[in-house]
Write a protein that binds this DNA or RNA. Structure first.
Lengths: 249, 249
DNA sequence: TAGTGGTCTAGACCACGCT
DNA sequence: GCGTGGTCTAGACCACTAC
């Protein structure tokens, strides 16, 4: 009863991992396990597919790399929900665009403190060494699943009294409404990365999990650098979508 | 002589994997092993760090996930060279922009045949089911390392005699020079993915290796869909960089 | 043919999550 | 306290690469 080896034999490359991988994938794709549904425990899967835990674990890691499943803390493995479509050129409307995609957004303020910015930020913003910036850290969720950890760096002196406001809403909106600030152009870059410890913890992800790092540099209308975001996305949760709005060259 | 455990003990989380990970990372960052340089064989590393091969292998996989090292075929592990900075909005100038970054580009035509496009492409281009398209497959390298596998899909009827030309140069250039075609806007999306078999083989990568999938949809000036690219990048080799060139909103 | 990474089994203990 | 994933050792064979 353990398994139809017939199904598995047909795979081209043989190898138990490959066969189990395909079998599990089929079960996920056919909706046998619903999105956000939990997979059976590793030990149960081992029994079912008559294999060792190490092998099983590697299969699961591969499915994770493909963005089909994810894990949270040590609570188990879950089927990945559809990706959130995200356009980094359209600004500051996380909550709205999540809702437009028929899903439930949530934003949580982690903290807001003065810190020395990390080298990447200092370089992007051409910030003098040793000078502190205001860092706002937030955690954003979709359908109760934390998917995005953001560090927002900005020049505190330009935004007096910012900390008195509710920082769990759109910061862009806040800048506009309270300080009358609007944006000019922006630049962003995307790197596949692994989650650093600070990001992994609030995201309830394993250290070293695959992630997508999006660094955004915002400019004010006068061309002066305004602020900078470091966004760590769970890699299975997002699909970046960009459209050129003018005729190039 | 095997290892200074003192160095390793200081790590916060303990765990041999974590310690070995840090130790190797330090060696890489300090340039003890040059970019594109080869790491010692896994078995040697095991000896040096007094651990088992499975553990060592997992450490190496983690460094791979972080984009610090990569492997080719079964030839060994290598230190990742700096990432190629790539702007998907600037078109068809792979060779030129690689050279601008002081590196050596190379493009190899794999094949060009009529096929039924995969579902993703058919959907993006709103192509009728069952109708064939011309598929051009190419492999692109930087400094002799294959980093990008591209499938280019296009409407063969609009480009008669295309196959008579040299398909290892810029296709955009070819369209313009030979057919007088210029582009309007384009759309692209980016997904972290795992390499499918077709892509893994020419890239000399292990099946299931992490990758970045960029799907680009090109439109002609009249707004008609022109063609579509599926680009599979080795995930450690690229950094996507986009700048908004106009004032949003 | 020797050396490399890739896979696999067996068995064990640890750390965290939940209740 | 029990169940979950996370890590670790031991030992083995396979598949591909380079020579």
């Amino acid at each position: 009863m353990t398994l139809k080896l017939a199904d598995m034999a047909e795979e081209q490359n043989g190898g138990r991992m490959e066969a189990i991988h395909q079998a599990l994938l089929r079960r996920i794709e056919q909706g046998e396990i619903a999105a956000s549904g939990r997979l059976p425990a590793e030990r149960l899967l081992c029994e079912h597919y008559a294999t060792h835990r190490v092998t099983m674990h590697e299969v699961l890691l591969r499915l994770e790399a493909e963005g089909r499943i994810y894990r949270e803390g040590r609570r188990g493995w879950f089927v990945s929900p559809p990706r959130f479509r995200y356009d980094p050129l359209g600004r500051g409307h996380f909550e709205r665009s999540v809702r437009e995609q028929g899903r439930q957004p949530h934003t949580q303020l982690l903290d807001a403190t003065m810190v020395e910015p990390p080298p990447l930020v200092r370089h992007m913003m051409q910030w003098p060494e040793g000078a502190p910036m205001l860092r706002i850290r937030r955690l954003r969720s979709i359908d109760r699943r934390p998917v995005l950890y953001v560090e927002h760096y900005l020049d505190a002196e330009r935004l007096p009294g910012l900390l008195q406001h509710d920082l769990s809403v759109s910061l862009t909106e806040l800048y506009r409404a309270v300080y009358g600030l609007t944006y000019g152009y922006l630049r962003f870059n995307i790197t596949p990365a692994a989650l650093p410890a600070e990001a992994a913890q609030p995201l309830r992800a394993a250290r070293g999990s695959p992630a997508l790092l999006i660094a955004r540099l915002n400019h004010a209308r006068d061309g002066v650098t305004r602020d900078c975001d470091l966004e760590y996305w769970r890699h299975d949760a997002v699909l970046v979508e960009v459209e050129s709005r003018e005729m190039p060259l």
